[in-house]
Amino acid sequence: MLELRLVQGSLLKKVLEAIKDLVNDANFDCSATGFSLQAMDSSHVALVALLLRSEGFEHYRCDRNLSMGMNLGNMAKMLKCAGNDDIITLKADDGSDTVTFMFESPTQDKISDFEMKLMDIDSEHLGIPEAEYHAIVRMPSSEFGRICKDLSSIGDTVVISVTKEGVKFSTRGDIGTANIVCRQNNTVDKPEEATIIEMTEPVSLTFALRYMNSFTKATPLSSIVTLSLSSDLPVVVEYKIAEMGYIRFYLAPKIEE
């Protein structure tokens, strides 16, 4: 028996909007720790890891570990039917091939339930070892989103270079080149507007902008994004989900032949 009640239902709506275009089908894993997911895009270049900790739910009942295969497009369709202020409850019985989403309006005057078919998904699970990152950049998520969108109108790839001076995002395309430098700036009034760089050594890596742009669909989940970079390792783009957990995207770099 599984029953998860999330008062801030809009979080789950935002999570689905953030990942549904990257991954078609995925297994949601439910355990005492929380509600989680790990899935790769079809080309195995990018990976999304989601964790919503059990403590973040108003009610969290998961009698035994359960993996539920869902089509994310269909799940997003169902969650779109929930209001932004609705409380969302997920329910599934042991051995059932369906999951039920229940939506309650804040005033309890409208209660809906949507039942969705589960599917068997043979997904590959990757072990991601703890890594020491050469550079960690923390910046406003809206700024990062803007940069990825702007650069993708010029080129297909972005070179992210971190030095003591700041973080540089560069691209080149048929019409020309672009460089955007964000300097460390932790003297702003609001902490969510700061750009903070922790660096042990300079790093420069190339990534496909198409994926970066897809990751920025998680912007509504957090005002801050963290980029963790190391030479010859996938970048980790993390959006923290307040009081609940995180959504992390891993993207393999492009490497010169």
């Binding site: 699970h125 393999a252 032949e257």
Partner: peptide, 14 residues
Amino acid sequence: TPLQNNLSEFYFTT
């Protein structure tokens, strides 16, 4: 042009 790597070149399958 740089080549796109695959995640399995960095992480192992469990």
